[in-house]
Amino acid sequence: MQALHSKTLINRKRLSEIIPLSTRTIYNLEQRGEFPRRIVLTSRSIAWDLSEVVEWIEARRASGVQAARPGDERS
């Protein structure tokens, strides 16, 4: 396990600056195992490991998968 002192945690505000998705979308992705899990710090504070979020972004970029656009007729 990686040493705790080398982790950078980010809060929801910082996450939303990096990942422009709604709170609900992030939660749904987490529940499906498609996004890094949040870390519960206190009953009112959550955070994400910045390195895991960056890895998620890079994996999305590398996959080449593009979201379907409304009206797109892809098979």
Rank of each mutant, 00 (worst) to 15 (best):
Q2K: 07
I57M: 09
S43V: 09
V65N: 15
E55M: 02
L41W: 00
P20S: 06
A3E: 02
T25P: 02
I18H: 02
T25Q: 08
V54Q: 11
L4D: 07
S16W: 10
W48T: 00
V53D: 01
L15F: 04
F35G: 02
R69G: 13
T42E: 05
Q66T: 15
G64H: 08
P36S: 00
V54R: 10
W48A: 00
P70K: 08
S22R: 09
R38Q: 10
L9F: 03
Q2I: 05
L21E: 12
P20H: 13
R32T: 15
P36M: 02
D72A: 11
F35L: 10
M1V: 01
Q2G: 11
I39M: 06
L50C: 01
S22G: 11
I39K: 08
R74L: 15
L50I: 00
T25M: 14
G71W: 01
P70I: 08
L29S: 05
E30M: 14
V53P: 00
I57Q: 10
V65T: 15
L21Y: 09
T8H: 02
T23G: 10
N11V: 07
E17M: 04
P70M: 08
S22L: 05
V40G: 09
Q31F: 02
A68L: 14
I19H: 02
S75N: 12
S63C: 11
R60Y: 09
D72H: 11
S6D: 01
K13Y: 11
A68W: 11
I26T: 07
E73I: 15
S16Q: 10
I57V: 04
